Amino acid sequence: MSVTAARGFTASGVSAGIKDSGAPDLALVVNRGPSYAAAAVFTSNRVQAAPVRWSRRVIGDGALAAVVLNSGGANACTGPAGEDDARAMAERTARALRVEAEQVAVCSTGLIGVPLPMDRVTAGIDAAAAELSEDGGEAAAIAIKTTDSVHKTAVASGSGPDSGPRSGSGPGPGPGWTVGGMAKGAGMLAPGLATMLVVLTTDADVSAPTLDSALRQAVRTTFDRVDSDGCMSTNDTVLLLASGASGVRPDPAEFAEAVHGVCLDLALRLVADAEGASKEIEVRVVGAASEQDAVTVGRSIARNNLLKCALHGEDPNWGRVLSAIGTTSAVFDPDRLDVSINGVRVCRDGAAGEPRDKVDLSGRAVTVTVDLRSGDASATIWTNDLTAAYVHENSAYSS
């Protein structure tokens, strides 16, 4: 049920003709209230798409009534005309829904530097508005795909102020409150955020400051720790909208846990669907002097192309892990480093440990665990292997 798992929301996805393939490419998510509280996190790339600039402005008052999203074109690096197009998308959506343009966030994804076919976009907005329904979440999730092979949704729910959240891709809402979400992303996956568009919804009665706190906490340890290929996008956007339709005001910590659960679910789906990937790699760094050290080491390992190639070839080359650690400023003693790959400690005290032929890399899941033996902090980074399919996908992307 995606973004319509939470009560008070409708959604739709249509084919507007933005993509030459005729695939769905325009989506609407609409908050029917009674609350319109919202929060957002955007890319930290200094080159930002026109939709990001527009949405940054309108989220300033902590309220949104709708989100319009398109795939097939990023509307990034398109100059003043692109700014006008982002505004026009908001205005056309506002007119169709009878709300103010400043209540509409805009998200776009696709090729950079190419203007949107605005006649098709605006007609698509009208068509999407006519198809809005409480069952439209899946259609919306499909419409925002670019190189994604699958659409990505997740749901978590709680029964009341004292209940713990239950996360996953289903079932739908119960008598309490729900958080639903959809995401797109399969390439340019790196912080801040990852290359993605994410819309989260909830029917909990939650204020904008509480939404903002929960969202930023969740993003910091989920989307911000997905590092597929080290490339940061111009369009990354994560939105969280609250309708308050359940009438339930959950405990803030439990609500934050539910938001985190949905974000983590979606983040891992991004990694699983990364362009050309044949391995999903979890890099766990423990024993760090600080969380920042753990993140820095984990990210260095996740971005090591030699290691990513080795793991694709099912070679547990732990020397490449140590080489990646050594490029960082983290606190560690090179002669006290331990590395395990899929549970086999192949490196002990900075030297060879158990025989590498004990490591089974035949499956899709790979876990690389590094113990810096310098403290109690830890962090996890998620990445994938580097394959010929990834190179092919990105060598032909704009042709």
Results as ranks from 00 to 15, higher is better:
Ser2Thr: 04
Ala5Tyr: 00
Arg7His: 09
Gly8Val: 12
Thr10Ala: 02
Ser12Leu: 14
Gly13Ile: 01
Val14Asn: 13
Gly17Lys: 11
Asp20Glu: 15
Ser21Lys: 04
Ser21Gly: 14
Pro24Asn: 09
Val29Asn: 04
Arg32Lys: 14
Gly33Trp: 07
Ser35Tyr: 09
Ser35Arg: 15
Thr43Asn: 07
Ser44Ile: 04
Ala50Gln: 13
Pro51Glu: 05
Pro51Thr: 00
Arg53Met: 01
Ser55Trp: 07
Gly62Val: 09
Ala65Met: 07
Asn70Arg: 00
Gly72Val: 05
Ala76Glu: 00
Cys77Tyr: 00
Ala81Arg: 14
Glu83His: 03
Ala86Phe: 11
Ala86Asp: 01
Arg92Ser: 08
Thr93Glu: 08
Val104Pro: 02
Gly110Pro: 01
Leu111Val: 11
Pro117Trp: 01
Arg120Lys: 14
Ile125Leu: 04
Asp126Ser: 06
Ser133Pro: 05
Asp135Phe: 10
Gly136Asp: 02
Glu138Val: 13
Ala143Asp: 04
Lys145Ala: 12
Thr147Cys: 04
Ser149Glu: 14
Val150Pro: 07
Thr153Asn: 05
Ser157Thr: 11
Ser157Ala: 15
Gly158Gln: 08
Ser159Arg: 13
Pro161Asp: 05
Asp162Arg: 08
Gly164Ile: 04
Pro175Tyr: 11
Trp177Thr: 13
Gly180Glu: 04
Gly180Leu: 06
Lys184Tyr: 03
Lys184Asn: 02
Ala190His: 07
Pro191Ser: 03
Gly192Phe: 07
Leu200Ala: 03
Ala204Gly: 15
Asp205Ser: 11
Thr210Glu: 13
Ala214Arg: 03
Arg216Val: 06
Gln217Glu: 14
Ala218Val: 05
Phe223Thr: 11
Asp224Cys: 12
Asp224Arg: 12
Val226Tyr: 12
Asp227Lys: 00
Ser233Asn: 12
Asn235Phe: 11
Thr237Pro: 02
Val238Tyr: 07
Leu239Val: 14
Ala242Gln: 10
Ser243Gln: 08
Arg249Phe: 02
Arg249Leu: 01
Asp251Trp: 03
Val262Trp: 08
Ala267Met: 03
Ala267Phe: 09
Leu268Ser: 03
Leu268Arg: 13
Leu270Phe: 03
Val271Ser: 11
Asp273Ile: 03
Ala277Arg: 06
Val283Ser: 09
Arg284Val: 15
Val285Pro: 12
Val285Gln: 10
Gly287Thr: 10
Ala288Ser: 09
Ala294Met: 04
Thr296Gln: 09
Val297Ala: 02
Gly298Lys: 01
Arg299Phe: 00
Ile301Tyr: 02
Asn304Glu: 13
Asn305Thr: 15
His312Val: 08
His312Ala: 10
Ala324Gly: 06
Ile325Lys: 00
Ala330Lys: 06
Pro334Gln: 00
Asp335His: 14
Arg336Ile: 03
Ile341Arg: 07
Asn342Gln: 06
Asn342Leu: 03
Gly343Lys: 01
Val346Asp: 11
Ala351Thr: 15
Val359Thr: 11
Ser362Asp: 05
Gly363Cys: 11
Ala365Glu: 15
Val366Asn: 06
Val368His: 00
Leu372His: 05
Arg373Trp: 04
Ser374Lys: 08
Trp382Leu: 01
Leu386Ile: 03
Ala389Asp: 13
His392Asp: 05
Asn394Glu: 12
Asn394Lys: 06
Asn394Gln: 08
Tyr397Pro: 01
Ser399Met: 02
